[in-house]
Design a protein around this nucleic acid. Structure first.
Lengths: 194, 194
DNA sequence: ACCTGAACACCGTTCAAGT
DNA sequence: ACCTGAACACCGTTCAAGT
């Protein structure tokens, strides 16, 4: 939930700085949702009602700002999967809902796709802690599915980032081709003998 | 094979203009292979040994230059699939080799991924003629595979662009995760009853 | 301590001057 | 007809001056 750098003690910020940081993040969410990766820093500053310098004071680079949004998305995704684990009794349906969540999430947040690509590439990069946590939860989910015999025996959590990355890019491609894509993909994850 | 605009009569170019155009394309191939989408026009001009203005005379925009490379790639891909159709007797292996070609091709040419995304999105865009030709060849290939009972009955050529688009993004993500991804994907395309 | 916004750097694109 | 490269526009980033 904390938006401070991991492993670094949160610096005490002046009250107005805290408010500005929040306004910048809020503005960035809107700007990135609307314009994707080519959202402009000047625009973020304008929406937040601050000078560009303030944006850069809180986030040293556009990339860093995008990553902060990704961090939020990770938290939400982790919460979602945790929710599935104790609310969705059907292990296959739970897996299916993970993929649907991934697809739905792409529409409003394009920086997220870049993060998924990082995971798929195996370079944990920053957000390593969150990536591990998400993978651990997904492994639990898969364990249930394997035990129920509804997925191929050899499917493990570390296979998933690449699958999500692929799905993300198909969703980004536009149109509704991703639905058919997901159908083929999910069918292919079932155990070979049916 | 022609690199002129489709449906527009090829203008007669002065001999030096023809040479320059070829030099620019050659330079662009190298620049894009090395730096991906953020290759610089100035760099392309330098490699080609011409002024930037000349690059812009032949290709009105960086996007247009990237598209010219994509056009070449389309031609090569079409030739490759055509080759498969009369050299590869095993219909499953032929399909497999299409995907492997797609993956291999990503390493050296990142603009290609954008074109695949266009196809996946269903927006034929420019290159429509080439897209249709490629799809027609792939449909022939799939027809053979379906007849031999080695792929799911309902798999059609228009399903493929999304699959290629997904694979492309996983390859771009780096690492070798794409091999496992491709394994899962291809297994999933086999007929359900084995 | 933190904020502002003019100034700088970089790169895509244009165009006046050349051949 | 085509080429050149200085100049322009745009946007990410910095920093001197303010509060």
């Amino acid at each position: 939930m904390s938006t401070a750098e991991p492993t670094i003690i949160t610096k005490r910020l002046r009250a107005d700085a805290v408010r500005n940081r929040a306004k910048v993040l809020e503005a960035a969410r809107a700007a990135f949702a609307e314009h994707g990766a080519e959202a402009q820093m000047e625009d973020v500053a304008r929406r937040a009602g601050v000078g560009v310098g303030t944006v850069y004071r809180h986030f040293p680079t556009k990339q860093a700002l995008a990553e902060a949004l990704v961090e939020e998305r990770f938290d939400r995704t982790i919460a979602f999967v945790r929710g599935l684990l104790d609310e969705e009794p059907d292990p296959w349906r739970a897996l299916e809902r993970c993929f649907e969540y991934c697809a739905a999430t792409q529409a409003t947040d394009r920086a997220w796709a870049a993060a998924l690509a990082l995971m798929a590439g195996g370079t944990m990069g920053p957000r390593e802690h969150q990536m591990r946590e998400l993978l651990a939860l997904e492994e639990q989910l898969l364990a249930g599915a394997r035990a129920a015999g509804v997925v191929r025996e050899d499917l493990v959590a570390t296979d998933l980032p690449a699958l999500f990355c692929g799905l993300a890019s198909v969703v980004q491609a536009g149109g509704d081709a991703w639905r058919r894509y997901l159908e083929l993909l999910l069918d292919g994850l079932r155990p070979p003998a049916r």
